[in-house]
Amino acid sequence: MHELDLKALGVTAINQKLYHIPKDTNERHWVIRNPMGQHAIACGVDAPLLIDIMGHVGFYCGGMNKEAEITIHGHAGVGVAENMMSGIVWVKGNASESAGATANGGLLVIEGDASSRCGISMKGVDIVVGGSVGHMSAFMAQRGNLVVCGDAGEALGDSIYEARLYVKGRADNLGSDCIEKEMREEHLEDLAKLLDRAKMKHRPQDFRRYGSARKLYNFNVDHADAY
């Protein structure tokens, strides 16, 4: 385990350190102290490192992550794990807006709540939120899974494409073209795996599934009032 003090080094020096760790090293575990809510911490990492960030982070922590397993021992600002490609970003606290925005792959776990636009334009990531998500979550969500163990805010899944949404609590207000869908065996299995990976103790049977009605896929004037 190696320690990096952000207060002493600054964000750029820490990111540069993480970018230049040799591929074949066994120095895999890095601990970042004093993150002080700074932005862009551990974004763009491209290696199978274990990174523990000991405190709160600002915007875009773990942005574009590839392969690294990043744990934030605090709350995360806007766009945590935005455009993640692979690996894991794990937030012990709450996350602000646009968590996991446009992310292509990997796993984002938020143990607390996530604010609005969680999973916006997601392109293949799996997101598991222990608490609730805010309005416009999964807006234009293309692919991947969003699991919400609490409630979902207004306009869930607005203009959604092929992403799958699972909500345990209330999802009273669905966005355009988002509908409740049948929970089949395969979905229960997928959901069980996701909950397991996120270490969340919930029964898949207690969730409901939402997805696209696919009515807005090709423009039709008779659906114009849905926009």
Binding site: V11, A40, C43, G44, V78
Partner: peptide, 11 residues
């Protein structure tokens, strides 16, 4: 802040 992130990722 977004520009800062892009600069970090591209050194």
């Amino acid at each position: 802040i977004k520009i800062h992130e892009l600069r970090e990722i591209t050194s």
